[in-house]
Design a protein around this nucleic acid. Structure first.
Lengths: 222, 222
DNA sequence: CGGCGGCTTGAAAGGCATCAACATAAGTGG
DNA sequence: CCACTTATGTTGATGCCTTTCAAGCCGCCG
C-alpha cells in the first residue's frame, strides 16, 4: 500500500531509477512498497510478469532446482538494483525469485512503466543502460578455479554494494554463494578459511573486510 | 556499403528485428551491411560503442582472455540474433567480439536507433523483449556435470537456430564450445564420442543430428 | 536452555584438466 | 591440383581440484 511519507529519493537515494523517479511521473506509478521476509518467495516459475521491482533494502535471487535436487542461482539482485527485466520477453517469470534477507522492494507496474518509457527519453535511456549492465556482467562466474571465482565475486559484490572502508556484510549464506558460483558450501568455507589465513580478508559472521586488495584482484585475474 | 537489392525481410526473414524493419523507418537507418571472415575481430575491449549488429549469417562470440592465457567466452550470438546490447551502458565494448565463422552483419547506428525507439512503440517493445530474452537465458552454462551442460547447450543451440529435422551444423569448434561451457576441447570431444556411442547423436565434421531427443533432454536436466 | 540452520574441518572418491601423441580436416602456396 | 602447413579433433595416462559424506561446532531464536 502507498506510503505518503516515502518520497522516492529520500528513502532510496542510490536506486538505479532515482534519477528518473524524482524528475518524472515514475513516482506516480509506484503503487506499492512491499516487505519480504528472508527466504520469502516473490515469484515462482510461470508466474505472470506484471511488475519490475526496485530493491530498496536486502537482495533477491532468481533460481531453479535441477532434477538432481540441487539449486542453481541464475541471477543476484542487490540493494539499489532492479529485478524483473528477465521476465519481460515472454510475460512470465522463468525462475523462482526469493529474498536472500529481509528485503524491501518498490513495485513498478510494468504496463504503465512502458507507457512512461515512450514519453520520457531519459527514462528510456536509463532502462536500456540498466538492462545492458545486467547483460555485460558476471563473466567471472563460470571459469577458472574456485578461488578465482570467489575473489572475483567478492570484488563484484563490494563494487555493486558501493562498499566503503573495504568492509561489508555478505548478503547471503555460503550455500547461496556456492549455488551462485557453482560450488558447494564446504568449498566456499574452505576458501574463506584460506583467504583469511593468508591475510587477504578478515571475516566473521558474514562481516567481511578486505585486508589486501591488490592480492585479491590478482587472484581474481584482474 | 549499401546494397539496394538487399531489402530487409527478403534477405533475413527471421531476424529478430524484421517485424519492425519492414514496417518502420528502421530500414532507413540501416546504413551498412558488412562481411566478417572467420576469426575476424569486430571489436576489442574499450572500443567505442556505436552500432548494434543484426546477424544475418554466421555467429559472433564475446570473449576475454584471463591472466593465465585461457579464453573465456561470455556471450554467443547466432544467426538472426542481435549483438551489441551489452555495450550500451557505458558506451564501450567490454569484450572482444569475434566472428566464429564467415559472418554477415547488418549495422544499426545506435543514436538513430534510439531516436526511433522513442517514436515507435512496437520497436521499443521488441528491443526490450530482445534484451530480456538475452538476460533470461543460459542457466545451464555453469552447473551440473560436463555432460549435462553440453546436452543443454546442444538443445539451446538447436532451438535458437530453429533447427528442423533435428540436424544442424555446429557453428563453432570444440575449443570454442569448451570456452563457452568452461570445459576443455578434449572433454568436449570425449563427451561427443560418448553421446555418439550411446546412440543419442550422430556427428561428423560438426554436422550433428539428434537421434534420441528424449534422452538428450533428460541428460540436460529437462 | 534446546533446537536448528549455518559454518568448519577431515578423509575419500571422482570428474575434469593437463600433457602427450597422433589422426584427420582445412587452408595455403607453388 | 598437389604438397605442405596449420588448425582441429581423438584417445590415453596421470594428477589435481572439488565434491561427497561425515562429524562436530557455533550462533541465533524461540
Amino acid at each position: 500500500m502507498m506510503n505518503d511519507q516515502n518520497h522516492i529519493g529520500s528513502q532510496c537515494p542510490n536506486c538505479a531509477l532515482v534519477p528518473f523517479c524524482s524528475k518524472s511521473e515514475l513516482e506516480t506509478i509506484r503503487v506499492n512498497q512491499r516487505q519480504l521476509k528472508r527466504h520469502e518467495v516473490l515469484h515462482r516459475p510461470n508466474n505472470q510478469f506484471s511488475h519490475l521491482y526496485a530493491i530498496q533494502e536486502g537482495a533477491l535471487k532468481t533460481h531453479v532446482t535441477e532434477s538432481s535436487g540441487k539449486e542453481i542461482i541464475h541471477g543476484l539482485y542487490l540493494k539499489n538494483e532492479v529485478y524483473g527485466c528477465d521476465a519481460i520477453y515472454n510475460g512470465r517469470h522463468s525462475y523462482y525469485v526469493t529474498a536472500l534477507s529481509d528485503t524491501v522492494i518498490c513495485e513498478i507496474f510494468y504496463p504503465k512503466f512502458l507507457k512512461l518509457l515512450q514519453s520520457e527519453p531519459n527514462l528510456l535511456v536509463g532502462m536500456l543502460e540498466l538492462m545492458s549492465c545486467q547483460l555485460a556482467g558476471g563473466v567471472y562466474r563460470q571459469f577458472g578455479l574456485a578461488e578465482q571465482r570467489l575473489c572475483a565475486f567478492l570484488l563484484d559484490l563490494s563494487s555493486r554494494l558501493r562498499v566503503e572502508q573495504q568492509a561489508f556484510l555478505l548478503p547471503m549464506t555460503y550455500l547461496d554463494i556456492g549455488h551462485y558460483l557453482g560450488l558447494t558450501a564446504e568449498t566456499v568455507s574452505r576458501l574463506f578459511s584460506r583467504l583469511k589465513q593468508e591475510g587477504m580478508i578478515a571475516i566473521q559472521n558474514r562481516q567481511i573486510r578486505f585486508l589486501w586488495l591488490e592480492k585479491l584482484k590478482e587472484l581474481a585475474g584482474d
